[in-house]
Computed example of a mutant assay.
Amino acid sequence: MTDQEALIREAIAAEADETVDARAVLAAVHAKRSRRRPLALLAAAGITVAAVVAAVVVSLPTPPAQTEELEVATPVEPRTVLLAGLDDSGRTDSVVLARVGVDGSVDAVSLPRDSWLDIPGRGMGKLNSAYVAGEVGEPQDLVRAVEAVTGVRVDHYATVDLAAVAAVSAVVGGVEVCLTAPASDEYSGVDLPAGRSTVSGDQALAFLRQRHGLPNSDLDRVVRQQAFLRSLAAKLLDPAVLRDQARVTAVLGALEAGVHTDPGWNLLAFTATLTPNATVDTTTVPHGQATEVEGTYALPLDPTTVRAFVAEFLSDGPRPTNQPGPPSDGCVN
C-alpha cells in the first residue's frame, strides 16, 4: 500500500466518528509526493479525468472540520495547463491545452498529434515528435511548441499514460460510448457495434486508440477522445460515485502510476479551484488537409489562424462560430 493510499484509507476510516476535511487529506498527500502526483490534470482531449477526480475528492461531504482548516488562496485569474496523453511506447498520442477559469469551468482545445509546426530549437516537425518519454526531448519541449503555435502561455503541464484512463473506466463500471457505425480494427483491438455501448479496460483503450479504418483517421480519434472523456466525467460526478469513498480511493489508485506533473504545480491549491458541476467546453484547433511533408503525412497549421481561434475560444466572450467537436448526441465515427 502506498503512503497516499494509507492516508486516504485513514480518512475514510475516521469518518465513522467524524467527518474528515478532504482538503486536509489532499494536503497530506501533497506533502508526501513531489514529482509523481495522482491528482494532476489528465490529457486526452476534451476534459481531464484527473480534474474530475480532484473535483470528486474536494466535493466529498465536509462539514466544518474539527481542526484548523487549510488556507487555500482563491485564484484571481484563469490558469492554463498543457495535457499530454502518452501511448504504451511513451509517444505523445494526444495533446490538450486547457484553461481552468476562476469559477472552475474548463475550456479545452485539442491539437492533433500529426500537427506540423515549429518545435523551438529543433525546427519543423510533427507535434508528437516533440516529446517521447525516455527517448526524445522533455515535456518542456512540447510545452514550448504549443506555446509558439497558440500564442498562449502554459502555467503547468501533465503527462498521463492512456492506460490509466482505461483503468479508471473499469473502476467506475464502464463508460458509455456511441458509434455511428460498427468498429472492428485489428491494430487497436476495438470490436464494437453501431449505437451505444459501455466500454471499460482494454475495450475502452481500444476505442480511444483506433485510427485505422476511420473516415478522418486521427481527427476522428480526437473527437472520440473528447466524447469519451465527457462521458467519463459525467460518470465520475454521479452522486452515487461521489458518495462511494472506496471507489474514489480506487480511482486515485488507478491514476497514481500513470500521471506526472511539473514539479512546481501546487495540486492542493489547484484542486480547490475545481467544482463538480463546472461547465466543460471542448474544440480542436483549425488545420489544413493532411498532406505529405518531408516524407510523412501531417496536418499543416497556420499559426496566425490558430492563435486567433484559440484566443477567441479561451476568452470569456462568445465561442468561435466554426468550433468543431463531438456532436450533441455523442455519437462519433
Rank of each mutant, 00 (worst) to 15 (best):
V109W: 05
M124C: 08
V95Q: 00
V49I: 14
V56R: 03
E147Y: 07
N128P: 10
T48Q: 05
L142R: 06
L70G: 07
A45I: 06
R99Y: 04
V172H: 10
D107N: 04
I47F: 02
A84F: 05
A84Y: 01
V154D: 04
E176A: 15
V168Y: 06
V76F: 12
Y131D: 09
G174A: 15
L82V: 05
P75F: 06
A145I: 08
L111Q: 07
D103M: 06
S105Y: 03
L162H: 04
L111M: 09
L179H: 14
V95L: 07
S89R: 13
T150Q: 08
P78V: 06
L111I: 15
V96A: 11
R153L: 10
Q66K: 15
L127S: 05
A55D: 02
P63N: 10
E71F: 14
V168E: 02
G173E: 15
L86Q: 03
L127T: 10
P61I: 15
A181I: 08
E68D: 11
G134H: 09
V109A: 03
S129A: 15
D155I: 03
L117T: 11
A167L: 11
W116K: 06
W116S: 12
V52R: 00
V100H: 00
S105A: 14
A130C: 07
S110N: 08
G46C: 07
A55S: 15
D114W: 02
V102M: 01
T48N: 09
P112Y: 02
E68A: 10
M124V: 07
R122G: 09
L70I: 14
L162S: 02
I119T: 06
K126S: 08
G90C: 07
V72R: 06
Q140D: 13
A167T: 12
D118Q: 15
E69V: 13
T48C: 11
V56L: 09
T159C: 06
V143Q: 03
L111R: 00
L82K: 00
S105P: 02
V171E: 11
V149G: 13
A50S: 10
D103Y: 09
A148G: 07
A51Y: 00
L86P: 00
T62S: 10
A167V: 11
L179W: 13
V76N: 09
S129F: 04
R153D: 09
A73I: 12
E176C: 13
V136C: 06
V49T: 09
T62C: 06
G134A: 09
E69A: 14
A98K: 01
E176P: 13
D114K: 04
G134L: 12
V100S: 02
V152C: 07
K126F: 10
V81G: 01
V52K: 00
D114A: 10
